[in-house]
Simulated scan of single mutants.
Amino acid sequence: MAQLGRHPGAGRTVAALALLALAVAVFVSLGRWQLGRAHERRAIAQAIEAGRAQAPLALSPEVDAGELRPWRAARASGRWRHELSVLVDNRNLDGRPGLWLATPLEFDGGRGQAVLVLRGWMARPLGGEPLPAVPRPQGRQTVEGELAARVPRMFELPGAHSELPQGWPGPAAPDGLPRVQNLDLDALARASGLALLPAVLMQTSPAGDGLARQWPQPSVDADQNVGYALQWFSFAAIAAIAWLAVAARAWRRRASNRIPERRDKTT
């Protein structure tokens, strides 16, 4: 590389070699990142398959936390604590903006032990119209669904908040229920005074309440990431070949410049 400085254009050659070397490193790094994403998606697919392969779990205050595996079918019986319902905002379904309704289901016995249930999705009214009435079935209820480790989170939008209102539960919010961007189980337990199971039940059983129950599914298409990785590695190979071509051309140029020097010395 030091010899390149003896002929015009050497600076451009050095810059080209440096940029091509950087491109190779970046493309390889991106390819490896895509392979990592593929590995993560395979792990998620295996977790979903393992959870759904287990027998349905009957939830109760005595259930072992180790049994609360995500994606496992489960059912719970008790009564709704409507006054502790929360709306989880900015949740879309088929491109329509809406909210999830989350309500604790208190187990039989009335000892403040419950499981948080994501009951379903409702559309957000347009034009500042009020929300439709929240369904409030009474008496003992049995709910079936799939377990999740927590309420699925999303990126915090500007101006959104995930804190429950001060003094809640207490006076009702203007539309009847507090709204949050993301709902944390521990925060809900502290605010409500309930002893919540360390899992969430995403309801799938019909209830005739007008709520939609199409819960988001994580992407498990690992082949797509592998395809992207191959593309990045191909770009890295092209950049590497270009580096070799530029280096070879510079070497030939240097060799051709050295021949006249030898002839001059012989004369």
Rank of each mutant, 00 (worst) to 15 (best):
P56V: 14
R258P: 09
H39R: 15
A237S: 15
A189V: 09
G227H: 11
P198T: 03
G51L: 10
Q34K: 10
G11I: 02
I241K: 11
S205H: 12
E67T: 09
G95P: 08
A123G: 13
A237G: 15
A212Q: 14
R263Q: 04
W80E: 02
V246P: 00
V115T: 04
A55E: 14
Q34G: 10
V26S: 01
Q214C: 05
L126G: 09
E106Q: 09
P8K: 12
A43D: 10
P152L: 04
A255W: 14
L84K: 07
A74E: 02
L59G: 01
F233V: 11
W232Y: 14
A229T: 12
A160Q: 08
P260D: 10
L116F: 06
L177K: 01
L185D: 00
D184E: 13
P8Y: 03
P165L: 07
A191F: 05
G95Y: 08
L35T: 01
A187F: 06
L164H: 01
L211G: 01
D264C: 14
D175W: 04
A148I: 03
A245F: 09
A55D: 13
M154G: 03
M122E: 04
D186H: 05
M1W: 12
S192K: 04
E83W: 03
I241F: 14
Q46M: 07
F235W: 15
A222Q: 05
L177G: 03
R124Q: 15
V115A: 02
R41N: 05
D64M: 11
I44L: 12
A187Y: 07
V117I: 10
E67H: 12
T267Q: 13
R6C: 13
G95S: 07
L57R: 12
R190E: 09
Q203V: 00
Q181E: 03
G227L: 09
G210F: 12
D94W: 07
H39S: 13
D184M: 06
A74Y: 04
G66R: 09
L131K: 10
V28N: 08
Y228R: 11
L185H: 01
R81N: 05
W168M: 03
A23E: 02
D223V: 13
A55P: 05
Q224K: 12
Y228L: 06
P198E: 02
A38R: 07
D264K: 15
V143C: 05
L20R: 06
R81K: 07
S192L: 06
V88K: 00
A45V: 06
A25W: 10
D209V: 10
A65L: 10
L147S: 03
A16W: 04
E261G: 10
W243T: 11
S256K: 14
P206N: 03
W121P: 01
A21Y: 01
G128L: 03
G193H: 04
E40R: 15
D175A: 15
A236I: 11
L105Q: 02
V88H: 02
G210M: 13
A55I: 08
R41L: 11
D223I: 09
R258L: 15
R124N: 13
R258H: 14
R258K: 15
T267L: 14
A255Y: 12
A38C: 07
P8R: 15
A240F: 08
L185S: 01
R81I: 05
R75E: 13
N225G: 06
